[in-house]
């Protein structure tokens, strides 16, 4: 799980082009959207692509993402349970 979380943070930084940010700058349970990291709806779409590309998880409805993308921790939990590869 720890490993997945670090991997995931690096992937998020990379795909969302969070320049100058390091994995340790993102707390495991900090909110990704709104107050926390300040991501927006386009970032949510990018995260949906990331889930499909890197873990084989397909989300049909962007609304599903809301709970899953609450934090890196919730994202990792969901991936752990649903990953295809």
């Amino acid at each position: 799980m720890e490993e997945l979380i670090v991997k995931l943070k690096n992937e998020i930084i990379d795909v969302l082009n969070l320049e100058g940010m390091a994995p340790e700058d993102i707390a495991d349970d900090a909110p990704l959207f709104g107050e926390g990291l300040g991501l927006d709806s386009i970032d949510a779409l990018e995260l949906i692509v990331l889930m499909e590309k890197n873990y084989g998880i397909k989300l049909k409805d962007p609304n599903e993402g809301k709970a899953i993308f609450r934090s890196v921790k919730t994202m990792a939990d969901y991936i752990e349970k649903n990953r295809k590869f």
Partner: peptide, 10 residues
């Protein structure tokens, strides 16, 4: 035509 990134389209 899969896993394309929305940002580049936008």
């Amino acid at each position: 035509e899969h896993c394309l990134q929305p940002t580049f389209f936008i």
